[in-house]
Nucleic acid binder design. Structure first.
Lengths: 340, 340
DNA sequence: TTGTAGGCGTTATCAC
DNA sequence: GTGATAACGCCTACAA
């Protein structure tokens, strides 16, 4: 079955190809009847405009590229879903590429998408910042990019971020107020901006409540359950298990909890836990996990809006949107005596 | 910063554009020195070939489209990751679109990708089959498509599927052998082929062991934890909680377990559980969840291989690959007396 | 209101 | 070996 082109339609109807083209692009004057005739025959023939050709001549694709560091953790899956929902409603298609937490892959992803002429890019950068030069160059050229999370201050670009410090502070303070004396923070990669900010929030709470330095600790981990487990093994080996943990995300918390249980510890009686970037699992596990919920859908939608503004008006102002979430307290971080 | 084209290079070097083009495509004769000179200047200028133009004239894109029904459940996230890893190693880029378990969106996704001239498509269809006609038409035209899971027999196309029936049978038989008398199956959407097959395996085990009809039941659910919870609410209301559940996936199992625990039931003492399509959560929750593990990476890679074969040789044979997994028995489905 | 013709950045088929 | 030149399918001045 051959792919028809406007040429085929033009020939069949004995009109010029430009007339046919115009029939598909409302912005030109064209007699109503010819337009309708053209659209109808096109429909009958099963004609589909070739978007590749359109891109080549128009220099725009109505495609938007999304680069995420991973979608193993629920968070970025949700981001992509929300982004797609919003952008489709605006007439764009969404092409997703994931970087597997690998800086080089991230660069290839961004380049591939830009080379494929996506009209704009939403990037959630992975660890490290060796690609910042590349992004800065594109931004200088006027290429529409919006960042989501994990972004260093240096780049002059619109971004949507979560107020990690504030909510990390709340989560930590909650543990302190519950009466836990020795609280460790499993922090994720230190060179990840979100981790850095959560660490700051943690420290701020410790300072505010004058917790002595020997009673808290920040331990670098990754973002996976496995890494939570490894830390616990190590702490048990060194007889250094604290009263409570505040974790960079739910998966790290769940891994740590598993390992503690396997070694006879009870949660929350012996060790309390708070997670972050709440997942659906928080309510399903036993004990249910306290966690900070991020407004994933709102963040994604806002990033989409900023990008579209920028695409449609290259002088659109650069904005940094800082979002807030909610802290859901559950069994994993309350004293037995407390009423939940 | 302007995007350079072969024209710019040609002008700068005082050669023709065809010479420049040839420098980038080894298959033509070209003097070694001119080639090297061209490649070097191109590099210096920061020239990047425009893939859109290439597509238009070559009719191939080195892009492959992947359509998945969702990536809320871990399974399809892993599939996409594995697919991407393999296809990138073969020189292709992977464009992912998700259908949100919506048939119409799936059709739009497939069309978008095909219109964007991806060289081939890997589709994991969502529930229902109203799009089958569309796929059949494309396949008849010789368009390379490979299906992953969830596919009806009627379509003559290569596919990679899991042997759901066999492993569903094993999982069910395990529950029977553990001595559970009354076993219910939470089945997912009945018109999903994977669900259908798992139901068959469940029934087969029941028949083999001559379990009387009043001692088993198949209850249709979705694929999310929420739906597992709803079923349990209903069963508790009707005083119809069995000894054991075999669930279409881990999330449904985890939702059901949550609801039972909230109502004072103990797992596995009062009610045992087996999940399917094992997730990372299976080992993290308490009790750890027995589940059937699918060889996700192998399945994705095989689908990628089949697609590439088909792209490179349109007469490549149509194959149906049926894969096997492993059944991991954990605490959620063993009698207290048993030794794990 | 419609047609002509040139261009988007490549590749590919001819000549030379 | 290399250079014109015509595709690829569409958009868009400019002319008519």
């Amino acid at each position: 079955m051959k792919h028809y082109t406007i040429k085929d339609i033009a020939k069949k109807l004995n009109v010029s190809i430009s007339t046919v083209s115009r029939a598909f692009n409302d912005k030109y004057d064209i007699k109503k009847e010819t337009k309708e005739l053209i659209l109808k025959t096109a429909e009958d023939m099963g004609y589909i405009p070739n978007p590749i050709a359109k891109k080549l001549s128009q220099k725009r694709s109505l495609n938007i590229g999304v680069v995420v560091p991973e979608f193993i953790n629920e968070y970025y899956s949700e981001i992509v879903i929300a982004l797609q929902e919003f952008l489709i409603s605006k007439g764009y298609q969404v092409l997703v590429m994931q970087s597997d937490e690998n800086e080089e892959q991230e660069l290839i992803n961004a380049q591939t998408l830009i080379n494929n002429m996506v009209d704009g890019l939403i990037v959630a950068p992975t660890t490290g910042n060796r690609n910042m030069k590349y992004y800065q160059d594109r931004i200088k050229e006027g290429y529409p990019i919006v960042f989501l999370n994990r972004i260093e201050e240096s780049v002059p670009v619109s971004k949507v971020v979560f107020n990690n410090m504030k909510w990390s502070f709340f989560a930590t303070e909650h543990l302190i107020r519950q009466g836990y004396k020795k609280i460790y923070h499993l922090s994720g990669y230190k060179d990840l901006s979100v981790s850095y900010e959560r660490i700051q929030g943690f420290k701020k709470a410790m300072n505010k409540h004058h917790i002595p330095k020997e009673n808290y600790k920040i331990i670098e981990t990754g973002l996976l359950a496995k890494e939570g487990m490894e830390v616990i093994e190590d702490l048990i080996y060194h007889h250094d298990v604290p009263d409570a943990f505040f974790c960079v995300n739910d998966m790290v918390a769940l891994g740590a909890i598993r390992k503690l249980k396997d070694n006879g510890y009870k949660v929350p009686e012996d060790v309390a836990f708070v997670g972050f970037t709440e997942t659906r699992m928080a309510e399903l596990v036993t004990p249910q996990l306290s966690s900070v919920k991020q407004p994933t859908f709102k963040m994604a939608k806002k990033a989409g809006e900023l990008l579209i503004e920028r695409i449609e008006d290259e002088n659109a102002p650069i904005e940094t949107i800082v979002m807030n979430g909610e802290f859901n307290i559950r069994q994993s971080s309350v004293r037995e005596s407390s009423i939940l």
